[in-house]
Simulated scan of single mutants.
Amino acid sequence: MDKQSLFVQVANLEERIGELYVELGTLKQKIQDLIEENQRLQRENERFQAESLDEAKTLETGSAQDNLLRIYREGFHICNVKYGSLRTEGECLFCLSFIQKS
């Protein structure tokens, strides 16, 4: 094997190792960002769960009308046509008429 070709192979390998090192650094940074975002989301989720639990305790003492209104505001149907399913197309006239009757 020629010394020149051996030197070229080593130089190419060194260049590829450098590229891999840069790629590894980029991946490490992405992983770090994802870990930080995951921790932030976990804290936020815990806070929301605590707030939801407090709200649920408060609502337990509320009237049935208040509970139905809360369910409707959370995006669910309260009418007898689609009770409990998600409202995907804005307001529901059946639900609104039910709220107004009560």
Rank of each mutant, 00 (worst) to 15 (best):
Q65V: 00
E89D: 10
N12S: 12
A56I: 04
L13H: 10
N67L: 08
E91M: 02
C79T: 03
N67V: 06
Q65N: 04
E19P: 01
K57V: 02
D66T: 02
L68F: 02
K30N: 13
E91W: 02
H77P: 04
I31M: 12
S63K: 05
R40M: 08
D33P: 07
E89V: 06
L53I: 09
K28A: 04
D33E: 11
V8S: 04
T88F: 04
Y72C: 12
Y83E: 15
T61M: 03
L59V: 05
E36C: 04
G25N: 11
I78F: 02
E14P: 10
T26I: 11
E91S: 08
D54S: 13
N38P: 00
Q49L: 15
R73Q: 09
Y72V: 08
R40N: 12
E14K: 14
T58R: 10
G18N: 15
E23T: 13
Q32E: 12
Y83T: 10
N80M: 06
C79W: 07
G90P: 01
F7I: 14
A56R: 01
E36G: 05
Q65F: 06
L59G: 01
Y21N: 15
E46Q: 09
E23N: 11
T58D: 05
L34K: 09
G25Q: 14
N80G: 05
G25C: 13
N12P: 00
R16S: 14
E46A: 03
I78S: 04
K30S: 13
I35W: 06
R73F: 00
D66M: 04
F76I: 00
T58W: 06
S52Y: 11
C79Y: 07
I71N: 03
L34Y: 10
D66Q: 10
L69G: 03
N38G: 07
L20W: 13
E91I: 05
G18P: 03
